[in-house]
Design a protein around this nucleic acid. Structure first.
Length: 157
DNA sequence: CCAGGCTTGGAGG
DNA sequence: CCTCCAAGCCTGG
């Protein structure tokens, strides 16, 4: 099977995905859409269903680099919940700043839910636009509130 | 090698 | 409460 590319809609944005089976190679938000399929989970998630794209695999978590460890830690933050840059840093054994850097270069947002990582005193940043992060967090908070997913199960580090 | 980043926490006004 | 500042550390160029 070859690597597939396609996009689906999320609000005013288009989510481009390059993937093969359950492995996502690349994912990005763009203004324009492209032809082609995206994984069902991504499509459903973007449509507002409380499914977690983390169920897919990401190339970003492979290897024993610090970044890969950061991405793996970020993947353990459940749908509808958030963690701070500092908490992830503490867990991986690096600095909050390094976590921010890794999030900024995350090749597969959603699959590695970097939008769930916020600053201690605010929402933190998001490329290419922080509005996307706000929309994703609002959507997850809303869907979680509906109770379609096991809620309020505080994950401990 | 070095600038710079999606951070923090502490100091000082 | 708010601004300012540097410690801290990984990575692309």
């Amino acid at each position: 099977m070859e690597i597939m590319t396609g996009s689906c809609r999320f609000g005013l944005w288009h989510v481009h995905v390059a993937w093969k089976g359950d492995l996502v190679h690349h994912l990005r938000f763009a203004r324009e859409g492209i032809d082609g399929p995206v994984p069902d989970v991504i499509r459903q998630y973007c449509a507002g269903k409380p499914v977690d794209p983390v169920s897919l695999r990401s190339i970003a978590t492979a290897g024993d680099t610090v970044s890969a460890a950061i991405y793996r830690a970020v993947r353990s933050v459940p749908y509808g919940e958030t963690a701070t840059y500092g908490e992830i840093a503490l867990r991986v054994g690096t600095s909050p700043r390094a976590v921010g850097g890794a999030m900024a270069r995350n090749p597969t947002p959603l699959v590695v839910p970097c939008h769930r990582i916020v600053a201690q005193g605010g929402i933190g940043g998001f490329s290419p636009a922080v509005e996307i992060k706000e929309a994703l967090l609002r959507m997850e908070a809303r869907e979680r509130g509906k109770g379609g997913l096991n809620r309020s199960s505080p994950h401990s580090f």
